[in-house]
Amino acid sequence: MNLDKRPPILLIAEDDPDDRQWIQEALVETHALVEIHFVEDGEDLMDYLYHRGKYKSTSTLSYPGLILLDLNMPKKDGREALKDIKSDPRLRHIPIVILTTSKSKEDVFRTYDLGANSVILKPLKYSGYLDILRTLRQYWFEMIELPL
């Protein structure tokens, strides 16, 4: 990882403010060296990625290094967003980690089938978030090379 460069952007698509708060807190607690950005639903996510809507003027935006995607969101849900991203040649290289509450085998299979890079069950304890974000940081931002 090149420290001269700007830290990678972690884009988090999550409609629930509580979850967003816990994720942010856990990020701070795990000292992750990433720039984080939240979007609140699938459409917001696509606007961000395509620099449109409220993200039109923010020319400094660059592609995120990783997207954390909640499956259940209003307007456009995570599955649809996932499908759109993975079918667009300009976006499909971005790794996507899914956060879900469904343990159903079928849901999990379907999510991978749509091109998700990982599927993580949402934790039932706050410490679960700490574990998840620590692991994510180690794996995605320290161990492997992202297509930045």
Partner: peptide, 25 residues
């Protein structure tokens, strides 16, 4: 229904669990 139960119903429940956990911690 299964989908609703697995996501929407579990969501608030999970919140209660995490909030309880945070409260305890």
């Amino acid at each position: 229904f299964a989908s609703v139960a697995s996501h929407d119903l579990q969501e608030p429940l999970r919140k209660i669990q995490i909030l309880g956990d945070r409260l305890n911690t």
